[in-house]
Structure formats: structure tokens, C-alpha cells
């Protein structure tokens, strides 16, 4: 049964990727080829991509070590708005699990996705690949840039970054 589901997901992912790709490079997309690997109960992982997504964030400066105050604020936002749909592990709930997200996505991609969700889902190939497994479009959460940055810091803390 699991093999059949993987096969169906693979066919569906290929179909979506093929039909969503208009043949042009989306604005802001990196030139690297998108590779997708489907894993059981995890989001579709894109490897070898350095996409910054689509939005106003082109260069996000990260703090080292983690800014604990920012991460705490990010955690509060997660508990208020995000936890209903996301888990802090790799397990998918409504949306993908957050564990490892800062390894899979650039900080700019994350910030753009949080603040420009609908455009990203409409035009960014990586976001659309996630949509294949999740099947639910994330609504805009109306977070400010500062709040989005706090969420990113919390994600980095969750991934054990320093």
C-alpha cells in the first residue's frame, strides 16, 4: 500500500511540476535545476537549490549566535498562529514540519514565503512542490517583517543553529 501511495504521489508531483512550469524562469528564481525527492510523511525536499523565493527579501543578515530574544518572540508567534498547522519535527500536519527547514531553504525564501505567501504559492516552484503533498494553501498570516524575522530565528533555534 505504501509503495502505491509513493508511486501515485510521484506521478502527481511530476504532473504538477510539469503543468505548473511555464517554461520561463520565474522572477527571482535561481538558475539551478530543481530536484525533488519524496519522503514518507515529509514535505517534498528540494536539493541543490539556492532560491530566494519571490518577494522583497533579497539579503537577510543572520545573527550568530542565535538571538534568544528574537527566538522567544518567534516561539510566541508559532504558538499563536503556526502550531495549528505545523509541527516542530519533520512530521507533516496540515503543512510541512519545520525541522530542518533552515537547511532546506534559504533565509530569504523563508522570509518571502511568510510575508508573500500567495504570490509564492502561485509562482515559486519549490512552494508549489510543497503544495503537492500538503494540498492546502496557507493563508496570509499578516505578519510584519519584524515578526517574520522572529519566526525565522525560532526556526533556526529549532534546527539547532548557532
Amino acid at each position: 500500500m505504501n509503495q502505491k501511495i509513493f508511486f501515485l504521489l510521484g506521478v502527481l508531483a511530476s504532473f504538477f511540476t510539469a503543468s505548473c512550469n511555464s517554461g520561463k524562469s520565474p522572477e527571482g528564481q535561481g538558475s539551478q535545476k530543481v530536484e525533488t525527492i519524496i519522503k514518507h510523511d515529509t514535505v517534498v525536499v528540494s536539493e541543490g537549490i539556492n532560491s530566494k523565493g519571490i518577494g522583497r527579501f533579497k539579503d537577510v543578515k543572520l545573527s550568530h549566535p542565535i538571538d534568544e530574544a528574537m527566538a522567544a518572540k518567534g516561539e510566541a508567534i508559532f504558538n499563536a498562529k503556526c502550531f495549528a498547522c505545523h509541527k516542530l519535527t519533520t512530521e507533516k500536519l496540515v503543512g510541512p514540519g519545520w525541522k530542518g527547514i533552515t537547511d532546506r531553504r534559504s533565509p530569504e525564501w523563508v522570509m518571502n514565503f511568510i510575508t508573500n505567501t500567495q504570490v509564492m504559492l502561485d509562482r515559486d516552484l519549490t512552494a508549489q512542490a510543497d503544495l503537492v503533498t500538503c494540498l492546502v494553501r496557507m493563508p496570509n498570516q499578516d505578519l510584519t517583517d519584524e515578526q517574520a524575522r522572529n519566526v525565522l530565528e525560532y526556526m533556526r533555534k529549532n534546527d539547532g543553529k548557532n
Binding site: A76, I77, F78, N79, A80, K81, F83, A84, Q147
Partner: peptide, 13 residues
């Protein structure tokens, strides 16, 4: 209400 004012606690789950 908490989500509207960005107030939330994991204990709610």
C-alpha cells in the same frame, strides 16, 4: 483570540 493578538501557549494543544 490569542492568535489575533499574537498571544499563544503550547499548553493549549
Amino acid at each position: 483570540l490569542g492568535s489575533m493578538f499574537i498571544i499563544g501557549y503550547s499548553i493549549f494543544a
